[in-house]
């Protein structure tokens, strides 16, 4: 299995551990990721708030490079995925847009190369059974709430999962030996850049999600987006302080949890880069694995 790989800007900075864990996990699952050479920023939320054409053109360049190679693009970041998917669909459905875009990026893009969410690739192309057979350090007794964020499964017509009650990450957690915990905030929006640009709006949005996650009694949150990660992880103490809460709720990229379950050393996955301490969970999982090994 081979895909073009588009990490996106966040994965080379705030979300670096997402990049690291993705590559490690893909490797141990036998999935080849060909990183798009000289990829550019997809424009994320800013371009499509500014100019519709720019918002399509920026992702289109990366997709065009993948198309030249004849590959679909695996995209970890939910925001990048949403922008790329929108571009792919709009270009594919309109000859006129295809011509405009190709003129603007000065490359050919027809919409043939598809934008695929990394989660979708793992769960639906590789399959849960294959993943399950490769698990050697199951996430035993680990209660996980899956946080898909708002963009990963929308719009419903383009999504790879149910837009209101998505299941793929939950099923993945189960395949990794963990315990998925159902909750109602799977797709509630974390406010994206609002925490930075307008914290009085962004913080309450983060608070609602953290509180709901905490109420389920889960041990940790799994996420698929670097922006969600920095909102829930980096800002967790800050938000907690504002609302008089101590959440102490570790947040993982789902790829990190996959890595741990596949037996990769957690440190190699970059989990020390988290802001909320995850050592307790890692220790617990190690102990469980140790017990199993000796048993």
């Amino acid at each position: 299995m081979k895909y073009a790989y588009y990490p996106g800007c966040s994965l080379s900075s705030t979300g670096v551990e997402y990049d690291i864990s993705t590559k490690k996990v893909a490797k141990s699952l036998g999935i080849e990721l060909w990183e798009i050479p000289e990829w550019n920023c997809c424009g994320a939320s800013s371009a499509h708030l500014t100019d519709h054409l720019l918002a399509l053109a920026l992702p289109a360049r990366n997709l065009a490079i993948a198309e030249e190679k004849g590959l679909d693009v695996a995209i970890p970041c939910a925001a990048c995925y949403a922008r790329c998917k929108a571009t792919e669909v709009e270009v594919r459905n309109s000859k006129e847009m295809q011509e405009t875009i190709s003129a603007v990026i000065e490359r050919q893009y027809t919409g043939k190369s598809q934008a695929r969410a990394l989660l979708d690739v793992f769960v639906n192309d590789l399959g849960l059974e294959s993943i399950n057979t490769l698990v050697n350090k199951p996430l035993k007794d680990l209660k996980v709430v899956s946080y898909y964020g708002c963009l990963l499964v929308r719009p419903p017509k383009l999504g790879f999962d149910d837009a209101e009650d998505p299941q793929s990450m939950d099923k993945l957690i189960e395949a990794l030996g963990g315990t998925p915990v159902d909750w109602a905030f799977k797709t509630e929006c974390c406010g994206a850049a609002h925490a930075t640009t307008k914290s009085e709006v962004g913080f309450p949005m983060i608070e609602k999600i953290l509180t709901a996650a905490k109420e389920t009694g889960a041990d940790c949150i799994a996420t698929a987006c670097p922006l969600c990660m920095s909102n829930l992880d980096m800002r967790q103490t800050q938000v907690g302080a504002k609302y008089g809460q101590n959440y102490s709720l570790p947040v993982f990229y789902f790829t990190e949890l996959m890595g741990i379950a596949l037996g990769i050393n957690p440190q190699e996955l970059g989990i020390s880069k988290h802001f909320v301490d995850v050592s307790g969970i890692v220790k617990k999982l190690n102990e469980a694995a140790g017990r199993r090994d000796t048993a």
Binding site: T14, R61, V104, K273
Partner: peptide, 27 residues
């Protein structure tokens, strides 16, 4: 944590991206 780099990541051939901006402006 290696999450922010003091220097910007740039891509080698940024001309292409600059051109995209220029082309969008032109339209």
């Amino acid at each position: 944590k290696g999450k922010l780099s003091p220097l910007p990541h740039t891509i080698k051939d940024n001309g292409e991206v600059k051109k995209i901006f220029a082309n969008v402006r032109k339209r």
